[in-house]
C-alpha cells in the first residue's frame, strides 16, 4: 500500500509532476510508482539512502535516463502539464528548459569563458555573448573571482569554483528548472556553504530539485523534502514537517540517523 502525500502547489499548478512513475534498468526496478509535484520557484530535496532511486528519479526530469542503455520509463512526467515522454517531445529540447548540475564538478577542458559560452553557442544564441557569459557568472557568484582570467583553463579553478562554473554554464542556456545531483558532495564545507547560499538566491527565479545525502543541507535549503526508500516515495511534504514531525516511521528513522 503506497501512501501519497501531497503539497499545495498554488493556482499556477506545479512546475513538475510525476504520476505513477517507474524506472527500470533492465529487469531491476529503480523507481517504483512515484507520484509527486514540484511547485514553481521552490527547492525540493530528494533524500534517502544510497541506491534508493533518487538520482534516477531526478534524471527523469531532463530525460538523462535516455542515455543509459537498458533504461525504461513508465508512467508520466509532466513539465507545466506537458508530458515530457510524449513521442513528439525531443529530449534535447527538454534539457534546454530543465538544466542539470552534476555531483562532481565536470567543466569542459576549455577556458572559463568557453565553458559558459558552449551552451548558448550550440543553442544558436544570437545576442551579446560577452554579456550573457558575464551575467551567468554573476548569477553563479563567480564573476568577481574570474573576471580577470576568463581565458584561463577551467581546470585552474578550485573544486568549489568549478562547481559554480558548472552552475553558471547551466544558467547560460536560461533554463527554468535546475536539477542538482548532490552538487556539494565533492566539496569542502566552505565551498558547500557558498553553493547553498547560491541555491537560496537562485530559487527566487528557478525551480530547483536537489538530491542530497546531507540531511542538514536538505533541512537548510529546501522548502519541500521527499524521502525515498527502495525506489518508493515514502513521504513527501514541507521540509520542517518531514524533519520535525514525520508521519512515517521509516522517515523518522532515516532523518534522525538511525539507518541509511
Amino acid at each position: 500500500m503506497t501512501t501519497i502525500y501531497d503539497i499545495e502547489v498554488g493556482e499556477e499548478g506545479p512546475a513538475l509532476e510525476t504520476r505513477d512513475l517507474s524506472v527500470f534498468y533492465g529487469e531491476t526496478m529503480a523507481v517504483d510508482h512515484v507520484s509527486f509535484r514540484v511547485p514553481e520557484r521552490s527547492v525540493v530535496a530528494l533524500i534517502g539512502p544510497s541506491g534508493c532511486g533518487k538520482s534516477t528519479l531526478l534524471r527523469c526530469f531532463n530525460r538523462m535516463n535516455d542515455l543509459v542503455r537498458g533504461a525504461r520509463v513508465e508512467g508520466a512526467v509532466e513539465f507545466h502539464g506537458q508530458d515530457l515522454y510524449a513521442p513528439t517531445i525531443d529530449p534535447v529540447e527538454v534539457r534546454r528548459h530543465i538544466g542539470m548540475v552534476f555531483q562532481k564538478p565536470n567543466p569542459f577542458p576549455k577556458s572559463i569563458y568557453d565553458n559558459v559560452a558552449f551552451g548558448p553557442r550550440i543553442n544558436n544564441f544570437r545576442g551579446d555573448e560577452d554579456a550573457l557569459v558575464e551575467a551567468s557568472l554573476r548569477r553563479a557568484a563567480l564573476w568577481d573571482e574570474v573576471r580577470d582570467r576568463l581565458e584561463e583553463s577551467a581546470y585552474s579553478l578550485s573544486g568549489g569554483q568549478q562547481q559554480r562554473l558548472c552552475i553558471a554554464r547551466t544558467l547560460a542556456v536560461t533554463p527554468e528548472v535546475l536539477l542538482m545531483d548532490e552538487p556539494a558532495s565533492a566539496l569542502d564545507p566552505i565551498a558547500t556553504q557558498r553553493i547553498e547560499e547560491l541555491i537560496y538566491e537562485l530559487k527566487k527565479d528557478y525551480t530547483i530539485v536537489i538530491v542530497t545525502h546531507n540531511m542538514q543541507q536538505a533541512a537548510r535549503i529546501s522548502d519541500y523534502t521527499a524521502f525515498l526508500y527502495m525506489g518508493k516515495l515514502i513521504e513527501y511534504g514541507p521540509t520542517d514537517s518531514i524533519f520535525t514531525n514525520p508521519r512515517e516511521e521509516r522517515t523518522e528513522a532515516y532523518v534522525t540517523g538511525r539507518f541509511g
Binding site: 534535447v92 562532481k104 550550440i122 547551466t170
Partner: peptide, 12 residues
C-alpha cells in the same frame, strides 16, 4: 561526465 555535461546543456 563530459558527455553528460554537454547533453545536459541541450546538445545533440
Amino acid at each position: 561526465t563530459i558527455r553528460e555535461a554537454a547533453y545536459g546543456l541541450g546538445a545533440t
